[in-house]
């Protein structure tokens, strides 16, 4: 991406690291702490245990989606179908008897549906060279159509109590869904940062040609990335259905953009090959804090959308500067 004028500029000014590149890895945690402190000073209610447990409950669904999104974005893609997968998983959760006995079948069907969506995404992207944006957009729309046709526009039925507990209850102040996020984050962090497959993900995303020369099956790695994203989105949909308690056709609406915003804020580059799960999770936390602060400061809820828009552009610009 570097063009001639930039190369010349570098020669003139010398290769001294910019503020952005020196702050790089710590920028987001620092930003998060600063925001919490400032929000706490402006509005003491922000640090009330009630509000904190509320925010902690909201981190998990977004965080779980971000983990999957991280794989796909590091592979130079993105996954817009996650919100549709979430809503469909939520509809599946209410399609059984609503008893705890059905938890395993629900989990199997929902995750299977998410993984199948990911498989279609991956096949379109790799075998048909469809751009990830369009491939995942199309599966999002098709899945939405099936969901609406199945529910006739109005889903009904109950979420099993176990999901209700998973989505909204806590143990000694720690929400169960946050524990689930921690477990998933740990497992997928090992997979991405400490395994052979993870290295293949970074190499494929960083430079597909290199990956091929190294004998990596780039198509297979990419398809698995989309399957992970679809499967995790289904899990997030189940968790979210337990949080909201009732299910409509739009559970998870907006999560496709929020998860991409969180990932980009967390330093996962849309150009591929760069970033990690922990950064993405910090991004998710910052987003939840910002949303919460907007409401707590008494600003109209519309400012959430405006701030989200500004934040994603600013974060992307920040990381472009850093990598240049």
């Amino acid at each position: 991406m570097a063009d001639l004028s930039q190369a010349k500029g570098m020669e003139l000014t010398g290769p001294g690291p910019s503020l952005a590149s020196r702050l790089g890895p710590y920028a987001l945690p620092i930003f998060l702490v600063l925001m919490i402190v400032v929000a706490g000073i402006i509005s003491p209610a922000f640090l009330s245990s009630n509000n904190i447990s509320n925010m902690l409950l909201q981190v998990a669904p977004l965080g779980i989606v971000v983990i999957g999104q991280a794989f796909v974005i590091i592979l130079r893609g993105l996954d817009l179908s996650v919100s549709s997968v979430m809503a469909t998983a939520a509809v599946i959760a209410t399609s059984f008897s609503g008893q705890n006995a059905d938890v395993l079948p629900i989990l199997a069907v929902a995750v299977g549906m998410g993984a199948a969506t990911g498989l279609v995404n991956g096949l379109l992207v790799t075998k048909r060279s469809v751009s990830p944006f369009l491939a995942t957009l199309a599966t999002m729309i098709v899945l939405q159509g099936f969901r609406f046709a199945y529910t006739q526009g109005a889903p009904s039925g109950n979420v099993p109590p176990l999901f209700r507990a998973l989505g909204s209850a806590s143990w000694n102040g720690i929400p169960y869904n946050l524990m689930l996020l921690a477990v998933l984050a740990a497992v997928f962090w090992v997979l991405l940062s400490r395994s052979r497959f993870g290295r293949e993900v970074y190499i494929t995303g960083g430079n597909p040609t290199t990956a091929r020369l190294l004998g990596i099956n780039a198509d297979r790695v990419t398809i698995i990335g989309y399957i992970i994203s679809g499967g995790l989105a289904a899990v997030a949909g189940l968790v979210l259905s337990g949080y909201v308690g009732i299910v409509d056709n739009w559970v998870g609406r907006g999560f496709e953009l929020d998860s991409i915003v969180a990932a980009v804020m967390g330093g996962i580059s849309l150009a591929g090959g760069r970033g990690g799960i922990i950064g993405g999770l910090f991004g998710a936390a910052v987003l939840i804090v910002v949303f919460n602060a907007v409401l707590l400061f008494g600003l109209p809820v519309q400012f959430q959308i405006i701030i989200k828009g500004i934040v994603i552009v600013a974060a992307a610009a920040f990381y472009v500067r850093r990598t240049n």
């Binding site: 379109l124 369009l134 957009l137 199309a138 098709v142 159509g145 099936f146 046709a149 526009g153």
Partner: peptide, 12 residues
């Protein structure tokens, strides 16, 4: 609902 599916399939 099915029109939505048809449109998505056409894009694909």
């Amino acid at each position: 609902h099915y029109q939505l599916i048809a449109q998505g399939l056409i894009v694909i």
